[in-house]
Design a protein around this nucleic acid. Sequence first.
DNA 1: TATGAATGAGGGTTCATTCAT
DNA 2: TATGAATGAACCCTCATTCAT
Lengths: 210, 210, 210, 210
Amino acid sequence: MSESTTPRVDGRSLRAEAQRESRRAEILRTAETVFAAKGYHGTRISDIIDAAGIARGTFYLYFESKQAIFLELIEQLLVELRGNVVGVDAGPEAPPIQDQLVETVSRIVRSVTEHKELTRILLREAVGLDADVDKKLSNFYLSLHEFIRYSLENGQRLGLVRDVDTDIVASCILGSIKYLLEERLMQDAVADPERIGRAVLDYNLRGVLA
Amino acid sequence: MSESTTPRVDGRSLRAEAQRESRRAEILRTAETVFAAKGYHGTRISDIIDAAGIARGTFYLYFESKQAIFLELIEQLLVELRGNVVGVDAGPEAPPIQDQLVETVSRIVRSVTEHKELTRILLREAVGLDADVDKKLSNFYLSLHEFIRYSLENGQRLGLVRDVDTDIVASCILGSIKYLLEERLMQDAVADPERIGRAVLDYNLRGVLA
Amino acid sequence: MSESTTPRVDGRSLRAEAQRESRRAEILRTAETVFAAKGYHGTRISDIIDAAGIARGTFYLYFESKQAIFLELIEQLLVELRGNVVGVDAGPEAPPIQDQLVETVSRIVRSVTEHKELTRILLREAVGLDADVDKKLSNFYLSLHEFIRYSLENGQRLGLVRDVDTDIVASCILGSIKYLLEERLMQDAVADPERIGRAVLDYNLRGVLA
Amino acid sequence: MSESTTPRVDGRSLRAEAQRESRRAEILRTAETVFAAKGYHGTRISDIIDAAGIARGTFYLYFESKQAIFLELIEQLLVELRGNVVGVDAGPEAPPIQDQLVETVSRIVRSVTEHKELTRILLREAVGLDADVDKKLSNFYLSLHEFIRYSLENGQRLGLVRDVDTDIVASCILGSIKYLLEERLMQDAVADPERIGRAVLDYNLRGVLA
DNA sequence: TATGAATGAGGGTTCATTCAT
DNA sequence: TATGAATGAACCCTCATTCAT
């Protein structure tokens, strides 16, 4: 008994675990498509299980509820997006700061483009759905806001940034990028991330005044 | 019946019409409160008719559906908000352009503050509800975008605005203001419209660079 | 407006109220039949509304839930049954006490017979369904128990009842009658309430010893 | 396969059979605990297999269904309870009949106390669950009823029991004991089996009349 | 024999909308 | 026009049982 059990258990549980994860991922992926196509409110569990080709109960084997799977998708996206935002490297051999900033914006644009549909939902329906989601979202934005503000203050210390209200300006910078993405997403046209990155940066740095 | 119809019709229908309108307005007003308190999805027709003190069927004498009344509220708000945005007066006796711009931003902030709850819903739940609402919303933003772009190009012709990508920059400006409002609305703190107006304007005009 | 409103309101509301009550009673009656036929767990809301010829939602217009309507039926029955148990009249012109006691038992038997099916359910499925029902049931039994005990103690004071453990004996008396009813209900044969009443009484008063 | 079957079958099948039985018994024992704690309707198969530490499918290797295992537990209990009820020994050297009767009642009380929770379920939830269970239950009660009736008639022949309706009185006696147990079970207080036994017997033999 | 992932029927409740009065 | 009782589609989630490994 033991000679077959031990390896079996290991082998099986490993394989099983892997399979479980892949199944879960598959459902998650399917759900992303369905949510993207129909929106959160328009998506019924039936839509997801039909698309995934699984039984009703199977869904609940992997996810607690409709809200839970949605929350997970949103979280995934938030983590990925947040990961794109990193501080600039001020070292002597680092690339020019402006280039680094452009690169950050470009990275975000690329991420968003990859998950265009889900981001669309994130921006549209995720807000106000559920306290949990709302919390995550506002934490996400807050974290970005704080990051930007911190960077501005740093810049001020270095004499690179002039004397502005960093709280309000951080919101403005965040908003300008966010809206740009929103708008472009709606129009299915996020072309040339770098060009957009440069334009945004130029605007944020120097304003519009001649 | 018929012999008394014609003369009566005018008097009656006028009064009736007026009454109808006032009742309609009353329901609309009530609905705004309820939607504001509970959100679109959280509001049931029962909530509205209870608050308005009317019968179930009566509601449907004035509005086609839950969505219809919501749409109407959203439209009203969009019209009011759009009305706040007007071109600057470049005449010789006009106040300084920057003051006019500050005044425009302040006006918007005040409007939004007046309809804080509904705006919150506009920003949160209105999007993705219905194709009609979506259309109206994107038209609204598009109109603002075009207005800003036009103003920038005007400014360029006058030598006031430097050579920027007006399309992208218009989005940035719009986004910076929108997000600021969103964020402040969520925090129940839209204090000092003018200070915010000045900070935004300063940022948009001159950027953050020292 | 007012001349038609006032009377209409009254007339209508009266008629409406009456109709509402009769409708409610009708559903209640139907539900009793269905519960009787299928038991609590075996009864689905669909069964009730099908039997009553009403729409799904209509049911919830009159009753909060499946449990609620069941609870109401049980309560009704408990009240009726409890009402049958009254103290004996010890006045000089009252009928013989034993006859009064026989009459009480007979009354209960008749009540139970009238609501045979529901009582069957009361005895079978009502217990352990829900804390509320359980509470009502144990209060019901407790009330009977206390009544019997009180009567026994009274009898002891009058020298009619010998020195027994009134607490335990009250349980025994209650149990003997309850089981008799249970058993007869199961067998669809509650014939001759008075004969049963006499036999039970004789047994309880004098025991089986020769 | 076949050449090794016969010799092995015995040894193996014996051990296997024993193991199977012990596993079965173990699950049964676990199920009793779970049913006792959560009631029939409140118990899910998951609860049982979790408590037993077996896999879902394994359960169905030993029992046909949730109902089947419950039925088996009920049967076990009924057999044990029934076993406590034995006729009195009327031989010359036997203890006094009344003492024997008291002992019988005490035995039942003790049995019930041992399986308090399961008995509670037997009395509450077992009824009306399933035709099979119902049949077993009514057979159980019927058997007790017949036993009591037979004893009464025997007593009548011996001149110990007076002329009563043995059918009805048998029900009364059974009912008085059953209810007493029910009531005490609900109150978690089955103290002093012998005292209860004596009181019940005294009541049943001599009634309450002074 | 043991496993546990998969199944899918089942059921209670909500609520926007209709319609007879 | 006003009423509010009636409607019934919609929908999520549970859980006993099956079956491939």
